[in-house]
Design a protein around this nucleic acid. Structure first.
Lengths: 410, 410
DNA sequence: GTGATACGTTGCCAGAGTCAACAAATCATC
DNA sequence: GATGATTTGTTGACTCTGGCAACGTATCAC
């Protein structure tokens, strides 16, 4: 129970303004006064401090049809960036994401085999070193890592990443030592929620459930009462291992009858006669929608009914506003949305399911980069007065490795 | 995203101090200084304001063995009270609970039949009117109602209380109109969590799950990341309707194979040969522990295994610090704690279950009164500067209806 | 009794947000 | 194109809050 003093007050107000322009996009000063309830002069002073610190920029006002003096637009800076890292079985992706939401660059480093933690650190540090030589005028806040596995929130230790074969790897510490930048790590699915919550299908929601279907299983995360649920040690969100069936079918953790054991991408690919290596999420969805095979419909129905058991349980316990489905679960849902809705309704309390939306994830391939960057930005958003000593050069957008200029909607 | 101004700052700090002494018990000024990080002079001023408002009292310091000037003890007032109301099928209970945690009075009004909402309001208002004639020197903050059913958080509308046969009853509004006091209502199980969280088995926990087994079903609530989960409309916590079995056994809501359908007090009473009307929670627990009947053991094992499915699901999704079991579920757990632990461990991810405690609820018969009072106190705790116009006389403790002086540990 | 220790009290100070008056920039109207 | 209405930024005086340091006070140990 920390008390609040004057410094905290200023910090809080700076934090609120920076969060607003970062999360909800650019806003005029007049809008900020209305949103925060603070005085015009206060907003002026706060924005001036943020400009001074290089965190936001003021643009000339949009031409509006209203009478009155135009209000300058306050926007999060493009020059303040976080580095987002996502190690996978066949590649390591590094993104440069700006506070404004723009994904400046996206570098994919393909690996011939699944990297060890040490290799992943070396490769990532190498990519970042390459970037540094090129960097100027940009301020790097820190590094966020999206790990496909269980990550201890406390210190970023990767407890278990089955897909990569990592156990108890101090990934965060290693990368911090190798780069000298602050590093934060979290489970990829929980970062998916973060991204969808702020910039995707969950915008403005305080209670949402997110389930992501990947090739190796089902993960997810949740936001409860406006707070991202981490749990005791950051392991919350493992929807894949909820029991939904009495069958003996085991999942990757050896538990029988779980969601992940019954609802799989591989089973869908098999009835469709598709190869995993050639099928991305969109292809799968198109194939499911195009198919008129009875076997496909039966498999879709079977999987949807099991998914409904898990979702209904979550609805009863959490009474969310929205359930966001990503990965192949989005495709599965798209194949027969009504069946899923009806099945969840049948298995949950009417009052609790009342008004719950089931929606596909909106952010595509940038999902994890945005989520990981958000993780790295958090420290800055909490305290915009933090001294950030790490500023590196990054001239224009002439990348050395591989450039994917991209952005996500605000 | 509300900004914070000077008034908010003061309010926050007053709120923090009042919460501390209310929730964690009396503390010396010196302790408050350390806990809040605020300056000694600030604490002095804040405590003085709270004393001025009659919310806290300063007592002479405890004799301590330390050198130095003794620090006055700051304690929440006994004279500031909330009225807690709990309508049930055969009685309406009203409690007078002080900010200090003392339950001054407890009045149980037995009804010959299950009361309608209007009757419940009339009876409650009558009891409160009787109290008012007697009241002096006490300040009544408001009324909190613990309703055995679904309550819409928004306005306290009782959507559905199956046990009482109520549907869409504006209980809160009616009682507010009848008494002129502010009224807040919530689901009884979710108030149970509140009580256990602050004063019982969940003290200091930020992630806890609470399941309560009652005669008519299983309800519960959860705290996620330090926030009580209400959900979109306050219906969160319905653990009873989670599916745990493939059987066709239906629960009160008509859903098959749910926790509430498989795990029931009645089934335990039946194998024990006990009558519901004569068996309270303690009796049930003693009978279960004393029994050496194979049928009883089998039924206990069957129910524990189903309970484990629900708990494992919750563990995987929420990664809590503690699972608190109340009502007959506490008795069930006590009958074979190891079996439950092992079964939950087998059905959940090792990392997520690691360190999770399963504990019985600590607060007994005062649970709901304390939870309901806490609900009513919340407005005051949020803003100790709130003008409270409602002060009524209450001379000594000479009750007119039925008095149960009692208190709960702090 | 004396010193050490811990804590409350007091008066002064700095910092943050508020307020009101004024200036500036736009639109609508004549 | 001048005028007024409207909205908003700017400025300086003001208020309130917590911090700080010096001082006073109450206890313990010797």
């Amino acid at each position: 129970m920390q008390g609040t003093n004057h410094d905290d007050l200023r910090r809080r107000n700076l934090s609120i303004i920076l969060r607003l322009v970062h999360r909800s996009g650019a806003a005029s000063r007049a809008q900020l006064t209305r949103l925060t309830g603070l005085n015009r002069s206060t907003i002026g002073a706060l924005v001036a401090e943020l400009v001074e610190r290089g965190l936001v920029e003021e643009r000339t006002p949009d031409p509006t049809k209203l009478a009155g003096r135009p209000s300058p637009i306050v926007a999060a800076s493009d020059r303040v960036v976080a580095l987002a890292v996502n190690p996978e079985i066949d590649a390591i992706t590094v993104g440069v994401v700006a506070l404004s939401g723009v994904v400046h660059r996206r570098i994919r480093f393909a690996t011939s085999s699944s990297p060890t933690a040490a290799e992943a650190v070396a490769i990532t540090a190498g990519i970042i070193d390459d970037l540094r030589n090129d960097l100027s005028e940009y301020s790097i806040i820190g590094i966020g890592i999206a790990v496909p596995g269980l990550v201890r929130a406390f210190d970023g230790l990767v407890r278990h990443a089955p897909h990569l074969g990592w156990v108890d790897e101090p990934l965060g510490d290693l990368l911090a030592a190798a780069t000298g930048l602050p590093v934060v790590a979290a489970n990829d699915a929980s970062l998916g929620v973060t991204a969808e919550r702020y910039f995707g299908a969950g915008q403005g929601m305080t209670d949402l459930i997110y389930l992501n279907g990947g090739s190796s299983g089902i993960g997810g995360g949740l936001v409860v009462g406006g707070v991202a649920a981490g749990g005791r040690a950051g392991y919350a969100g493992e929807f894949g291992h909820i029991r939904v069936s009495a069958s003996g079918q085991k999942d990757s953790a050896g538990i029988a009858g779980t969601l992940e054991a019954e609802v799989t991408r591989d089973a869908l690919l098999e009835v469709l006669g598709l190869r995993a290596s050639e099928t991305d999420a969109d292809t799968l969805e198109r194939a499911l929608l195009a198919s008129d095979s009875a076997a496909v419909h039966a498999e879709v129905a079977r999987q949807l009914d099991f998914l409904a058991v898990a979702l209904a349980g979550a609805v009863n316990v959490l009474n969310p506003q929205v359930i966001v489905l990503g990965g192949f679960l989005a495709a599965l849902h798209a194949a027969d949305p009504d069946r899923l809705s009806r099945a969840v309704a049948a298995l949950s309390l009417g009052t609790a399911f009342d008004g719950v939306q089931i929606a596909p994830a909106l952010l595509g391939s940038n999902l994890l980069l945005i989520g990981a960057a958000e993780l790295a930005f958090e420290a800055l958003l909490l305290d915009p007065q933090l001294d950030r000593g790490n500023t590196f050069a990054l001239p224009a957008l002439s990348a050395r490795v591989a450039v994917s200029p991209a952005s996500h909607p605000h």
